[in-house]
Design a protein around this nucleic acid. Structure first.
Length: 585
RNA sequence: GCGCCCGUAGCUCAAUGGAUAGAGCAUCGGACUUCGGAUCCGGUGGUUGGGGGUUCGACUCCCUCCGGGCGCGCCA
């Protein structure tokens, strides 16, 4: 299908050039699948002005050109100048295997993909699932089209919160609780610290939070906060006791993360957290100061941006605090340098929520000033919130990722047990896991990533309609059918004449590589979800209308082939999204 | 104050310059005594937040207003 679209595009463009001269005619015109015809081309209207001819004159040339292609049964002009192409059934049937022929557009290129990136000492909650699931799907899709992908979990394992955590550990730790649920206990003492510090600040008469006025009165710092800053300085200077504590925090957190990643089926090539770049911060900022990219400002170091030099005017980018401390801006600049020198990627993609858009515009503008040639892309997604508002770990109104997955499996198990009472308990468990997890992932992936999501249990765990279970069900039915037909000894055979629902199904199959390629180009996995749903729908219509097992031998063989291809695409497509399929459900 | 994002059927979402704006849920009606009914076929439901502009053509691009989310040098 990809090749066909290319040849028709080239044919059409060549014909236009020959008829009307080369000026204003691109190398390819666009033919694409359409609801009104097998393929459609709107180039006649687009080029009419440049060529100073009525659109229908151009369309007539395109019709003639397209008609010369052996795949084309008919081409017509419609409407203002659309060209509608009908393909030969024979061509469609003969190209069934194109459905799995992906184009290696990424061959020879490397991409760095930064996703998940949870913070140490905090449990993973439902807000983390988008970056994790989205990034994992992108990794798989990019690899499918030939890119070498370095997936990197840029852990939040360094920074000011560790000063606070160390103080909290010494003051508030409940060792028994830590032994039971380490990360929960770290969260508890961190929240406790924040509350105590807030109380101290209030007692000092300082305005709670919300700065903005220029009172640089360090006298108002709460004693607890001062203590935390001191511990942070010790940690960053390599104090043995603090470093040991920090390592412990990271260890217990990683154990939790790894457990969640295993459950989600997510993996990383490298896990280079913020701490990994610690030694590179000072040299990086010094280098930027030396070459004039960064400049001193009020005792701190910043990068400033002007419209003339950087293409857009942005607020200053803070790299080093007046007290000499570094921030995540400096970490990200160091990570940028490291990634460029280590992997030489053609593109770096960073998957985080929308709130960091400004930060990454600043970072990327800084990187361009540093001479980074790779294309830099912030793959941002909309915030997840609860009906009552944005959730925050500190306020405790979060839903743990683990609870979400448990509930998903519980609901999937209940449905499976009810609809298929013959299932053995262990198979029921396996189905609950695959279907429940699939529903959760698909729910996130099937919406445009930039959509703001308001979390509700029923929406997140829906098993009806455009959901993973619908696709999994289509797959399981095919597998069941194949098992049943195998008992009769019938085998697959060539596809010949096509009934309308079969024809629609094959055309849908052939669009699969297009969908995969679009996801790779735009980093929007919901395009693949939409495609797979369309495929499952086309299959269900076909399956409801035409017999397979009891069809005449040649028809049965052909339809078995069709079913087999649908199953393969469903399995592979879902796998690209990080979703498994059950053999029965 | 400056900036980014969003507003599509009752609800949740597609359509990123192409034809008559499509799905799911909900709702109403139908499907050979079922190759798995977690399914299929059909109906109802739209001034795409309002207004203006660009274009042969606008949900899509531009301006403006309204409503919502988020961000804006010493957190990440």
């Amino acid at each position: 299908m990809l090749d066909l679209l290319d040849s028709l595009g080239a044919l059409g463009a060549a014909a236009l050039r020959e008829a009307f001269g080369a000026d204003g005619v691109p190398a390819h015109v666009v033919f694409e699948p359409s609801q009104r015809a097998d393929l459609q081309c709107a180039a006649a209207m687009q080029l009419a002005r440049a060529l100073k001819r009525p659109p229908r004159d151009l369309a007539a040339v395109l019709v003639t050109a397209a008609s010369t292609h052996p795949a084309v049964a008919r081409a017509d002009i419609a409407g203002a100048g659309f060209v509608n192409v009908t393909l030969h059934d024979g061509w469609i049937a003969a190209h069934l295997d194109d459905a799995l022929a992906h184009r290696a557009v990424g061959a020879g290129q490397t991409r760095v993909l930064d996703y998940s990136s949870p913070n140490v000492a905090k449990p993973m909650h439902i807000g983390h699932i988008r970056s994790t699931i989205l990034g994992e799907a992108l990794k798989r899709v990019l690899r499918k089209v030939g890119y070498a992908v370095v997936s990197d979990n840029h852990l939040g394992d360094w920074g000011t919160q560790f000063g606070k955590l160390i103080v909290a550990w010494r003051r508030y730790l409940d060792e028994a609780a830590f032994a039971r649920e380490p990360v929960q206990e770290l969260l508890r003492i961190y929240v406790k610290f924040s509350d105590e510090e807030k109380a101290q600040r209030a007692a000092l008469g300082a305005a709670p939070a919300k700065d903005g006025d220029d009172d640089d009165a360090p006298a108002a710092v709460a004693p607890l906060l001062a203590e935390a800053r001191a511990e942070l300085v010790k940690l960053q200077a390599g104090d043995a006791e603090n470093v040991a504590l920090w390592k412990r925090f990271v260890d217990v957190s990683m154990r939790e993360f790894d457990r969640m990643y295993a459950r989600l089926g997510v993996s990383f090539d490298v896990t280079l957290g913020e701490s990994f770049y610690n030694d590179m911060l000072a040299p990086t900022v010094d280098a930027l100061l030396a070459d004039g990219t960064a400049e001193p400002s009020q005792g701190a170091v910043v990068v400033t941006f002007t419209k003339e030099r950087d293409g857009e005017a942005l607020p200053p980018f803070l790299l080093r605090k007046a007290d000499g401390g570094f921030l995540y801006g400096s970490t990200d600049v160091a990570a940028m340098r490291y990634r460029m020198t280590t992997w030489s990627p053609s593109r770096i993609l960073i998957v985080t929520d929308e709130r960091q858009q400004l930060h990454f515009r600043q970072l990327f503008a800084t990187a361009r000033r540093m001479g980074v040639g790779a294309r830099l892309e912030h793959v941002w997604f909309g915030l997840m919130r609860l009906p009552e508002g944005t959730f925050s770990t500190r306020d405790g109104n979060v839903i743990a990722l683990e609870d979400l997955l448990d509930e998903a499996e519980r609901r999937a198990r209940a449905v499976a047990a009810e609809l298929n009472p013959a299932l053995a308990p262990d198979e029921l468990d396996a189905i609950a896991r695959v279907v429940g997890l699939g529903a959760v992932k698909y729910n996130d992936l099937s919406k445009d990533r930039q959509t703001l999501v308001t979390f509700t249990w029923d929406k997140a765990l829906s098993l009806q309609g455009n959901t993973a279970p619908y696709l999994q069900y289509a797959y399981a039915r095919i597998r069941s059918l194949v098992r049943k037909v195998a008992e009769t000894g019938a085998t697959m055979g060539p596809v010949g004449a096509l009934e309308p629902t079969e024809r629609a199904l094959v055309l849908t199959l052939l669009r699969y590589p297009l969908a995969v390629q679009e996801v790779a180009q735009t980093a929007r996995p919901h395009v693949l979800c939409d495609y797979l749903y369309a495929l499952a729908t086309a299959f269900s219509s076909f399956y409801g209308e035409l017999p397979v097992k009891d069809a005449a031998p040649e028809l049965r063989a052909a339809r078995l082939t069709l079913c087999d291809r649908v199953a393969t695409v469903l399995r592979e497509g879902l796998d690209l999204l990080g979703i498994e399929v059950p053999e029965r459900m």
